[in-house]
Amino acid sequence: MFRNQYDTDVTTWSPQGRLFQVEYAMEAVKQGSAAIGLRSKTHVVLACVNKSNSELSSHQRKIFKVDDHIGVAIAGLTADGRVLSRYMRSECINYGYTYESPLPVGRLVVQLADKAQVCTQRSWKRPYGVGLLVAGLDESGAHLYYNCPSGNYFEYQAFAIGSRSQAAKTYLERKFEKFTSSSRDDLIKDALFAIRETLQGEKLTSSVCTVSVVGVEEPFTILDQATVQALINEFEISAEEAPANEAAAEPAGGDAGGAAAEEPAPMDI
């Protein structure tokens, strides 16, 4: 017997008005290791968890510099993410060539979303299996967007995607109101704390995460491992009392991630 008649291609509607293939693509984002982003008025920080497939291999890069003023963090199919970041890079270069000025972040995000949308409406295509957190700076300030395989995009103050991202989201939701006025260094600190939430017990070290920043007077940069480790060490000292109450919130956050079954259709997210 057929489990589901309506999920064999992207363009077929279910009688409930859903597109299952698109929803499956959204699921691929949740399988990938976590990526988080948060922003203040002047800076955006992206961070991600690095997972290697085997003891013998290194991990895949999940954060890419697109241009001096834009960077992305991805969760899901890394291969798709690379293709999309290459597209974004070339859009930025072309805009820079024509107008000698940086491409506004919001416009790049719309172009990216339109590209993803096309894949949800063509029988011979497949949706991208990747979620992108796009961080950027333009005339109107610092921005953080989330682009998903369905072709939807959203602007956020702070967001987390990927596996166990619910724990990070809970952390960010608790703190986001102060982010607007945060310093660059405080954003990085919160990024590391949020990343730690997704690790569930595993120790946070510079080898399991990547951190990047873009901001006023600061082109997009991925912090090197030594810098990140120094920051972790620095925070760990003062953080010993902080994790105590965060640890209390952790199981709750973990549960919320597990009890996500009753969430709205994934396309809405």
Partner: peptide, 19 residues
């Protein structure tokens, strides 16, 4: 048509025309 609050300035138009 982007209707997003961004607009091309003199520098952008100059560079466009140069191209």
């Amino acid at each position: 048509m982007w209707d997003d609050g961004n607009s091309l300035g003199p520098k952008e138009v100059h560079n466009y025309l140069t191209r």
